[in-house]
């Protein structure tokens, strides 16, 4: 079977610091990582390949430096990596991103064999919209399975797949046809360490690098800023509340009592509510 996994290279948010005075993001030296949610998709794909045979192709759209994340994916055991990179893609919102990625998946299918499953993560840790998976599915006419917690069964010959999907208030057990697109839920597996052989292979592997033209993008006006219906108009710092916080003095002998007194002074009704809650009503 052929599986395509879409991964995004993102700044390691755990290491992002906000400048205390200017309130701007200090990006210098912030390392980039594979979007953590995408590793669950990658592991699910690798496990299916191990079980059924075939190949896993990882795909990312990003700047040339995103090649690092693709190489990392190869060390985990992916078979092939494709980098979609072009200045035309800069400033893409999710609609423009899915246009580019869907085009690249189509090209991957023509070049290396039609995919049976396309995987994405649940969402990213930077844009965080969870819109890219459904967008790719719609553009490729693939059946869409989002928030998948478990892939119960894949019947390659019968072209069908059964999954458990997280929904509001429970789990749906779904069956659908291949090919399909799956967005994988977090904490559903653990990415393997990667074999030594894969690490060596990854270091020497040739990453396939495609421009918009190479990938078969026909309409540049659907890419990047120009192809994005959403426009970020204003970026601003949140304002402080008009009224300053009342500060309780810690040097008082009983600061806890002072704090409670201040809370109930401001909202007398709260004391009754709390007493009722505390009694378990």
């Amino acid at each position: 079977m052929h599986i395509v996994v879409c991964i995004k290279q993102v700044p390691d948010s755990a290491q992002i610091r906000v400048h205390p005075v200017t309130n701007t993001i200090m990006r210098q030296g912030v390392p980039t990582i594979i979007n953590p949610y995408d590793l669950f998709a990658l592991e699910a794909a690798l496990a299916l390949r191990d079980q059924h045979g075939g190949e896993v192709t990882v795909l990312t759209m990003g700047p040339p430096s995103a090649e690092d994340s693709l190489r990392k994916a190869l060390t985990f055991g992916a078979d092939r990596a494709v980098l979609l990179t072009d200045r035309f893609f800069a400033g893409s919102d999710t609609l423009a991103t899915t246009y580019a990625l869907a085009t690249a998946v189509r090209k991957i299918g023509e070049t290396f064999g039609a995919p049976d499953i396309v995987f994405t993560g649940k969402q990213t840790i930077d844009g965080d919209t969870a819109q890219v998976g459904p967008g790719i599915a719609k553009r490729l006419g693939l059946l869409q399975l989002t928030y998948v917690a478990k892939i119960a069964n894949v019947d390659l010959a019968g072209r069908s797949i059964q999954v458990e999907r997280r929904s509001e208030g429970g789990v749906q057990v779904l069956q659908t046809r291949l090919p399909c697109l799956i967005t994988m839920l977090e904490a559903t597996n653990e990415i393997r360490r990667g074999a030594m052989a894969d690490a060596l292979r990854a270091a020497r592997a040739e990453v396939v690098i495609w421009s918009a033209k190479d990938a078969g993008v026909e309409d540049i006006s659907k890419c990047g800023l120009r192809g994005s219906p959403t426009i970020v108009k204003r970026v601003f710092a949140p304002s402080a509340r008009a009224e300053k916080a009342t500060m309780v003095d810690f040097s008082e002998t009983a600061p806890a009592d002072a704090l409670i007194a201040e809370i109930f002074k401001r909202q007398p009704k709260l004391e009754d509510d709390l007493a009722a809650l505390a009694r378990g009503y």
Binding site: P134, R139, Q144
Partner: peptide
């Protein structure tokens, strides 16, 4: 989970912007 699954598909079908 329902709304995000649906909104992404609908916005892509309609080719319009979706702010999350």
């Amino acid at each position: 989970t329902l709304g995000r699954d649906l909104a992404g598909s609908v916005a892509t079908t309609l080719l319009t912007g979706l702010t999350a």
